[in-house]
């Protein structure tokens, strides 16, 4: 999961630094992730993991760091499994 997220971040994030230099818990917005790039990242993740973010998770916090994205995805997968 971590690898796929990093690959997507590198492709659509438009960050001024290389993705492998970004720690899992680093603030992606501080690293230069724009609002529009975060939306593209969201769409890319949905496609790669074949899932849909519920409206309640479509916010900045869900994409604040690689770790936050992993947690959000885990939460979505769990909810979908329970449903």
């Amino acid at each position: 999961m971590n690898e796929t997220i990093r690959e997507l971040l590198g492709r659509v994030g438009g960050l001024p630094v290389a993705v492998n230099e970004i720690a899992d818990d680093a603030d992606l917005y501080a690293a230069g992730l724009s609002s529009f790039a975060s939306v593209q990242l969201m769409l890319g993740i949905e496609e790669a993991f074949d899932l849909e973010f519920p409206d309640s998770l479509l916010n900045r916090k869900s994409f604040a760091s690689i770790q936050a994205i992993e947690q959000t995805l885990t939460q979505i997968v769990k909810t979908q499994a329970a449903a």
């Binding site: 609002s35 939306v39 409206d55 479509l58 900045r60």
Partner: peptide, 14 residues
């Protein structure tokens, strides 16, 4: 669109 939902949430959060 749906991407817009996220932009809207971001705008409100900030």
């Amino acid at each position: 669109g749906r991407a817009g939902k996220m932009m809207a949430n971001n705008q409100r959060d900030q």
